[in-house]
């Protein structure tokens, strides 16, 4: 499978990139590490008229610590993220999540921004033209029907990124640059939960950096997959809690691989507040999880299995955080 033809642009600044992108937002795609985009282009599910290569723009790869927050440049590679002593020491949930992405080559090429904007995945969509020729094109690939639920004009493709759950659990915000200038908003609002267009970025907007607040709590990122490398999460969990007097004062529970975006289990979060983590609480909350997520049959793994594993991951995560104050 070969790349289709496209116009290729190397902007010198983010501003120039925004201008190029605004000119034809639907036909233009941003290229950073290319580990997601190029595969989809070879599969023919994305056919850009033009590509803007962001790596031609200087000074977008950085990790800067400030008093209130750290700022991570959009082109920071995943490898740079998890090898940073600062991230390893203070934001270990992030370094774990970055280390779990794909395999080593993806981590070297892949960027923070690219990972956050990684396309939703579906077993009917991320396939070759030959594979897809067996049935009519799906809604996401330009057709009419969603083969997952056999209904027209819907898309239930699944968000499978590793970084976003961890960053959302940390309360991260993103700074984006658009034709109207910069705006900052919580990362979780980046995700539209619309499988066909999973990102809520406005016309011409490009992520510039991710802002992660300094924190006093503890988090874990647990990714479930059958092999120790390469695979996307069957399901993964980012769990972050803050405690006061050994009681939970803040909890964030975010899953990947179970919905059209990173799924925050707000019911579970609420139930955690004010609790002291002991075995009976952990047991009862873990049993709740399978009912709180509703994955679809978008991969080779069954929704029932994903739900079951989501509960097992929460149990494992809470067990690990039980003894940490």
């Amino acid at each position: 499978m070969r790349l289709p033809k496209f116009e290729y642009i190397e902007p010198k600044s983010l501003k120039e990139a925004v201008k190029n992108l605004s000119a034809d937002p639907s036909g233009t795609y941003l290229l950073a590490g290319g580990t997601d985009l190029l595969v989809n282009m070879k599969f023919g599910v994305i056919t850009p008229a033009r590509i803007i290569h962001l790596k031609s723009i200087p000074k977008l790869s950085y990790i800067i610590e400030e008093k209130e927050a750290i700022r991570i440049g959009v082109l920071t590679s995943l490898r740079d993220l998890y090898t940073s002593p600062l991230i390893q020491e203070k934001f270990s949930i992030l370094s774990h999540a970055a280390r779990e992405v794909g395999a080593y080559a993806h981590q070297v090429m892949g960027t923070v921004g690219g990972n956050l904007c990684q396309g939703n995945r579906c077993r009917f969509y991320n396939q070759s033209p030959f594979w897809r020729s067996v049935r009519p094109p799906c809604f996401k690939a330009g057709g009419e029907i969603c083969h997952v639920i056999k209904k027209p004009r819907e898309c239930h493709s699944t968000y499978c990124g590793d970084l976003a759950p961890a960053l959302i659990a940390m309360g991260a915000r993103v700074k984006v640059l658009g034709p109207q200038g910069e705006r900052i908003f919580p990362l979780k609002r980046l995700y539209s939960f619309n499988g066909k267009k999973p990102l809520s970025l406005r016309k011409g907007e490009i992520i510039k950096e991710v802002i992660v607040p300094q924190s006093s709590g503890k988090g874990v990122y647990l990714k479930w997959r059958w092999r120790g490398s390469i695979e996307f999460p069957i399901v993964s969990l980012a769990l972050y809690i803050e405690k006061e007097d050994n009681k939970i004062s803040l909890a964030r529970v975010v899953f990947s691989g179970v919905g059209e975006g990173p799924v925050e289990a707000s019911g579970i979060e609420k139930m955690l507040i004010g609790k002291t983590l002991d075995d009976s609480i952990i047991d009862s909350l873990s049993r709740e999880v399978p009912q709180t997520v509703s994955p679809m049959r978008t991969s080779i793994y069954s929704p029932a299995y994903k739900r079951k594993m989501a509960g097992i991951l929460l149990r494992e995560g809470l067990d690990r955080l039980k003894w940490i104050n």
């Binding site: 070759s128 594979w131 059958w226 092999r227 490398s229 695979e231 080779i300």
Partner: peptide
């Protein structure tokens, strides 16, 4: 690890992402 998963004669995992050949890990 390995299994060619099929649905009505179509291979669902014709790639190294979904076909779980053991890695060095």
């Amino acid at each position: 690890y390995e299994n060619i998963i099929m649905e009505k004669g179509q291979v669902l995992n014709p790639n190294f992402l979904d076909y779980g050949i053991p890695t060095a890990m």
